[in-house]
Simulated scan of single mutants.
Amino acid sequence: MSKMYFTEEHELFRKSLQDFLKKEVVPHIEKWEETGTIDRFIWKKFGDMGYFGIAYPEEFGGLDLDLFYTVILLEELQKINSGGFAAAIWAHAYLAMTHINKEGDQRIKEEYLSPSITGDKIGCLCVTEPFGGSDVAGMRTTAVKDGDHYVINGSKTFITNGVYSDYLVVAAKTSPELGNKGISIFVIDRDTPGVSSVKLDKLGWRASDTGEIAFDGVRIPKENLMGEENKGFSYIMQHFSLERLIMGINAHARSEYAVEYTIQYMSEREAFGKTLDKFQALRHSIAEMASEIEMSKEFNYSVARRLDKGEYVVKEATMSKLLSTKIADEVAYKCLQMLGGYGYMEDYPLARLMRDSRLGPIGGGTSEILKEIIAKIIIDKKEYKPAT
C-alpha cells in the first residue's frame, strides 16, 4: 500500500475494519441480498465502532479523521461483494450526513448528526425525481411557506435508504420561478404525515432499499430548512464532488477485487493440461486490466488528497467517476468471461459483481451528463465555484 497516502495508523484501521466486516457483516450478506432488507443491528454496530463518525466533528461524537480513512472504508466495503450493502452505508454516511453536517444548524446537528454517527438514526438524500433524472434544476417538488411551516409536495425516486431510513434530506423548490436558483434543502422525519415510500425492484444492489418517495402536503417547521433558502442547488453541486469521488473509489476497489478473485480462480482451474494463468491471452488481459485499475486508483488517491486539503475538485472528481466506473464495468465483464460458465452462476461472485457494477455509470450523474460537465470545463472554460 502506498506510503504516500497511507500511514501505519491507516493500515491498522484497515486491518481492524477487515476483521469487523468478516465477523459482523459477511455472514449476513446472502440473507440481505435475498430479502432486500439490512437488519437494523448492523447500523448500531457500525456506529459503536465509530465508522459513521470518521469524517465528522468530535463535538457530535465523530472522529474528525482525514479523508483516507473514508477511502479505506469505501474500499473494504466493496471487497465483501455486496454493492447494495456498501451503498446503504455510504449513502447514509456521506450523502445524507454530509448535508446535515454542512448545512444543518446546531439543533439539527444535535438531533440528526449525533444519532447518525452512533447508528441510531439512518438518513437518505432525496434529489432525483421521476421526471428529472440527472436534471437537478428541473425538479418539480415544491416547498411553499405557510406561516411557521413549509408544505412540501412532489416525489423522488431511486433513493438509496429510501424505505427504511429515519429521516430524509430533501431538495425542493421554494421559488420555482428562479429555476435552479430557487432550490432549498430540508430535513424531514420519516414518520411525518404525508410521507410515503415504495421499494423498487432493481437489477443489482439487491441488499439496499432503493425507494420512490411521495410527499403529499407534508408540513414541516420552518426551522427544518438547512442553510439559506434558495441556495440548495449550490449546496448539492458542491457535495457532488465527494459523491462522484466516492463512486470512483468504489469502482477501482471492486475492480481490484474482481481481478484478485479471477487470478486465484485461474491458478486453480486447469484446461488442456495446465492452469488458466499459464495461457498468454488470459495473462495479457489480466496485465491490461491491472494497469488500468492502478492508474485509476492512483488518480483517485490524488484527487482524495486534494479534496482533503479543501480544494474544489469538481473537474477531477467528475473525471474519476466517469473513467473509473467505465473501467470497472469492463473489468467485471472480462473477469466473468474468464470464469466461463462458472462466471454466469450465482454461486460465484462475479455474476453479482457485474450486476452491481452496472449502476456505476448511472447513479450520481450518468456518464453522458459527466462528459458534458467536463466538456464545459475543458472547451467552454466554465468555472464551477463553491457555494458562498
Rank of each mutant, 00 (worst) to 15 (best):
E372F: 09
P361Y: 10
L21G: 06
K173E: 02
G204H: 07
G138P: 04
Y112W: 04
E346Y: 07
T7L: 04
E330L: 15
M338K: 14
G36K: 10
G123R: 08
R305P: 00
G341S: 09
M247G: 13
K278V: 06
Y94V: 01
H99N: 06
V195L: 03
Q18D: 00
F299A: 00
E129A: 03
A171C: 03
T70I: 05
A387W: 15
Q337I: 01
E212G: 12
F299Q: 01
V331T: 00
F158L: 10
G62Y: 01
E30I: 08
R269I: 05
G104V: 03
Y112D: 03
I293M: 02
K3F: 02
V313R: 12
K173F: 01
K3G: 04
D356E: 09
S175W: 03
K23S: 12
Y344H: 15
L307I: 10
V198P: 02
R352S: 07
T325R: 10
P193T: 01
R283V: 07
I89Y: 05
Y384P: 10
H284S: 09
G273S: 14
I89F: 05
R206G: 03
W32V: 12
S184P: 11
I373A: 12
D308G: 07
G47D: 02
A171W: 02
I117G: 09
P176I: 00
M266Q: 06
M49E: 02
A317Y: 06
G248M: 01
N81G: 05
K309H: 12
A171P: 05
E177H: 14
G133E: 13
E311A: 13
H28I: 05
A143G: 11
E229F: 08
E212M: 08
I188R: 11
V25E: 11
F6N: 14
S324T: 08
L12E: 08
S155K: 13
L359S: 02
A351R: 15
E268R: 15
I220D: 01
L322H: 12
T98G: 11
I188G: 01
E243N: 14
K199R: 14
A351P: 05
N153I: 01
Y164D: 09
D48Q: 13
M49C: 11
E256S: 13
R206C: 06
E288C: 13
R352T: 01
P130Y: 06
S296W: 02
H284M: 13
T318I: 02
L95N: 14
E383Y: 14
R358W: 11
K382C: 10
I108W: 09
S285P: 03
K79W: 00
P349T: 04
A304H: 00
C335N: 10
V198G: 08
E75Y: 09
A86N: 11
W43D: 07
L21I: 00
E30Q: 12
I80T: 06
A55H: 07
D201M: 07
A251M: 15
V169L: 09
H149N: 13
K45A: 11
